[in-house]
């Protein structure tokens, strides 16, 4: 079964899920991200689901798992581009994503990390002064 590609951009991991995926692909993705985070020091994970039309409780659990794993390993997870119908469905389903930051688009997710990293650099700079 095809693996979902994980792109490495600077200190970010970018995953764009384009179509319905098999459960096994989801589990594989979870493992891949955990491994990458262990070997390198990535600071953020962006999961772009703008093309994904269904997120059921299994897929939701995978997203939550990725977020929790990342958090433990020192990275923050941002889910971008969730479709309105998917969002309503998840709310009706009662699925919560407490550790997940969300943004309206992939661009905004990148912008979020840029701001965050810059803020941190500034703080480091000022503490040295």
């Amino acid at each position: 079964m095809e693996k979902i590609p994980v792109l490495k951009i600077g200190n970010l991991l970018l995953i764009s899920i384009q179509t319905d995926i098999y459960d096994s692909q989801g589990l594989q993705l979870q493992d891949d991200i955990a491994n990458l985070l262990q070997r390198h020091s990535f600071r953020g994970v962006i999961l772009d689901i703008s093309s994904l039309s269904i997120v059921d409780s299994f897929m939701g659990k995978i997203i939550n798992n990725i977020a929790s794993i990342s958090l433990v390993m020192g990275a923050e997870t941002v889910v971008s581009g969730m479709q309105p119908a998917v969002a309503i469905t998840l709310v009706e389903l009662g699925l919560e994503m407490p550790n997940v930051k969300t943004t309206l688009s992939l661009e905004k997710a990148i912008q979020f990390f840029n701001e965050k990293f810059n803020r941190e650099t500034d703080q480091d700079g000022s503490s040295q002064e």
């Binding site: 269904i54 059921d56 299994f58 479709q83 119908a85 998917v86 309503i88 469905t89």
Partner: peptide, 13 residues
């Protein structure tokens, strides 16, 4: 769309 996504999700479950 919204009903379709809900039905698809319910069926998946």
């Amino acid at each position: 769309e919204i009903y379709k996504v809900k039905l698809l999700t319910a069926t998946s479950e």
